[in-house]
């Protein structure tokens, strides 16, 4: 590859344009509020966005295969409520152990999704639409409609995300570690590449020996595990486990993927893009009050951004196809 073409591919990549866009956004907000780009504020934004980053990456792998996981918010709710209740009734149990249990609960919930898709042949959207209701309903059933509030949680549980390592909060570390591991998984492991293969062309992937069932189990279990961690982090960070925890969050995770350049039809996208997409959403959410826009505009603005991002995705894909065609004709 000659140097000019490699520069061209870098500038054409979604990640580059997203970084530029984030830069422009930060600059624009700073014009109105000079304090916005400060170390503490940036840290706050990343902290706010870490949960979204983790769950969006799980969502990303599902979307990569052409599916969708609508149950992530309910999995966060159920695993978060379970973990908070375990902490409430067993205050002696180390917080790290509760985190692992929450993660395992998420894993089991994800495996149920995966089994229904892989072995029951139920399409992902129907499976997760169903489990979205089931898991949310189960949250109400186990909690009997009650909340777990701050004074019922132990100090160490509430400190899970707030703790500090090298001056950076634990929650941010979780976001970073998950992102790095998942980046490696998607790019350099066999299973990771197989997920791309299934998303790109299911039939071809099967012919080269990719087992679709195993892939479905992998992606939904992964999404469950990440939602499980997110659930524990959510309830400990906000020091409350309510029954509606994270309701509607699934749309934000899909939005982060779409903004990050992931094609809803499957087969294309990357972890880095998803992380940037989530950060972009996080910055927007934090910037609204700073530039004096009422938070009631948040929903509209998010929808509009997703729509624009999708239009850009589609149009650039079309252009790429046309260029490919042109290249062939020459």
């Amino acid at each position: 590859m000659s140097i000019p073409t490699s520069i061209k591919t870098i500038t054409q990549r979604r990640e580059t344009s997203l970084i530029l866009l984030i830069g422009v956004l930060l600059f624009g907000v700073t014009m109105r509020a000079p304090n916005f780009v400060s170390v503490t504020n940036i840290e706050r934004i990343v902290n706010d966005t870490s949960i979204l980053i983790m769950v969006s990456i799980g969502q990303f792998f599902v979307i990569l295969t052409g599916g969708i996981d609508l149950s992530v918010a309910s999995m966060i709710g159920l695993s978060g409520m379970s973990a908070a209740m375990i902490n409430q009734y067993n205050p002696g149990m180390p917080a790290g152990f509760v985190l692992i249990i929450g993660m395992l609960i998420g894993m089991v919930l994800g495996m149920i999704n995966g089994a229904a898709v892989a072995y029951g042949k139920v399409p992902p959207i129907i499976t997760t639409l169903g489990t979205m209701s089931i898991y949310r309903g189960m949250t109400f059933v186990i909690s009997r409609g009650q909340w777990v509030t701050a004074h019922e949680m132990t100090e160490s549980y509430m400190n899970l995300p707030h703790g500090n390592f090298l001056g950076i909060s634990n929650l941010i570390w979780w976001g970073i570690v998950v992102s790095v591991i998942m980046f490696y998984f998607s790019k350099y492991t066999k299973r990771g590449r197989e997920i791309y293969a299934i998303g790109g062309n299911k039939v071809a992937a099967k012919f080269v020996g990719v087992e679709e069932k195993k892939i479905h189990m992998t992606i939904f279990t992964l999404s469950g595990i990440l939602s499980g961690i997110a659930g524990v982090m959510w309830t400990s960070r906000f020091a409350a486990a309510v029954n509606e925890t994270a309701a509607g969050f699934e749309l934000q995770t899909v939005a982060a993927c779409v903004i990050g350049g992931v094609s809803i039809a499957g087969g294309s996208g990357a972890v880095v893009g998803v992380v940037l997409g989530a950060l972009f959403l996080g910055i927007i959410n934090n910037a609204l009050p700073v530039i004096n826009l009422s938070p009631f505009y948040q929903m509209f603005i998010q929808g509009a951004i997703v729509l624009v991002a999708m239009l850009i995705n589609t149009l650039s894909e079309k252009r790429r196809e046309q260029e490919l065609l042109k290249g062939r004709q020459q």
């Binding site: 779409v258 009631f296 505009y297 948040q298 509009a304």
Partner: peptide
């Protein structure tokens, strides 16, 4: 634009309700 219906209506889901929320 040949975009998948689920993606489009996911966006307009926020936009349509967002309009009434922004004003109300």
């Amino acid at each position: 634009f040949k975009m998948p219906a689920i993606a489009v209506t996911l966006a307009t889901q926020s936009i349509f309700r967002g309009i009434s929320q922004a004003i109300l």
